[in-house]
């Protein structure tokens, strides 16, 4: 059944902008991204929006829908109350380029800072032997589609630009966790992630987990275990003892 839907979309660029109302015909079974496409095709051909797969697999169409960070391709219109406009604004944590498109280069800079996977001396060359049970923890984090919603919602940087320099954000904490839990990785990145990537700034409010479209347990399975591992390394009495004797480079 077709009906009239009003979208209230933020339009503008770095110099400013505001909400503009568009009314289009929408259908049952459509998602917010469909409605945005109707606006583009019929009313505002130059309206900027990112999207690719339209199936929740690529993480491109992130925006704030009625104030909540989410993928527009997974936001079904049937879950909104009819007759009320749907408000769509760009991700707040990142600088606006135009309309719903933001400058997410912050995330790509943080990605460059991750020391890459480094195989162990025991198994330096693939094919590796690794048990399913041992790869599963890291596999959960590799489901990440890099939609940056967790980064957007994280209050450490959401309204605190000055924290961005020292904070990689939840997406990258699970990247470090993934590598730390990789059964055949040799590098220890715990000190790095705690001291230089801002893991210590996270006070586990779990906002990131709540917005993750892949339902990755970012906080429980990634951030908290990483924090624990960092603490273990720091205060492990056996290691401290060895270190005093000069036997172990922690």
């Amino acid at each position: 059944m077709a009906y009239d839907l009003t979208l209230r979309i933020w339009r503008g660029d770095a110099s400013g902008g505001g909400l503009v109302d568009y009314t289009v015909e929408a259908e049952d079974g459509e998602v917010v991204l469909d409605a945005v496409h109707h606006v583009q095709a019929q009313l505002a051909g130059d309206m900027a929006v990112r999207w690719n797969c339209k199936a929740g697999k690529c993480g491109s169409c992130s925006a704030e829908v009625n104030g909540r960070p989410r993928l527009m391709c997974l936001a079904r219109l049937s879950t909104f109350s009819r007759g009320e406009p749907i408000t769509i604004t760009p991700l707040r944590t990142f600088p606006v380029i135009r309309d719903l498109v933001t400058d997410v280069s912050f995330n790509y800079r943080k990605a460059e800072m991750v020391p890459a996977f480094t195989p162990t001396a025991e198994q330096p060359t693939a094919p590796f032997r690794m048990a399913q049970v041992d790869v599963e923890r890291s596999q959960e984090f590799r489901k990440c589609i890099e939609c940056w919603l967790c980064q957007d919602t994280c209050h450490v940087i959401r309204d605190h630009d000055d924290n961005k320099e020292a904070f990689s954000g939840p997406r990258f904490f699970i990247r470090y966790a993934e590598l730390d839990m990789h059964p055949n990785d040799a590098l220890d990145r715990k000190k790095l992630v705690q001291e230089d990537r801002g893991l210590g700034l996270c006070n586990i409010t779990k906002c990131c987990t709540e917005v993750c479209p892949e339902k990755i347990k970012i906080t429980d399975n990634g951030i908290i275990p990483m924090k624990e591992r960092v603490v273990d390394v720091k205060y492990d009495p056996v290691r401290l003892f060895r270190r005093r004797r000069g036997g172990d480079d922690v």
């Binding site: 890459a116 996977f117 195989p119 060359t125 693939a126 094919p127 590796f128 032997r129 690794m130 048990a131 399913q132 790869v135 890291s138 596999q139 590799r142 590598l179 990789h182 990785d185």
Partner: peptide, 20 residues
């Protein structure tokens, strides 16, 4: 495929720990 594993890909495994 093995090259991807060398670069960090984590494929599902067989019972023997090989790529399923």
């Amino acid at each position: 495929v093995w090259e991807l594993e060398q670069w960090g890909a984590l494929f599902d495994r067989t019972k023997d720990g090989l790529i399923s």
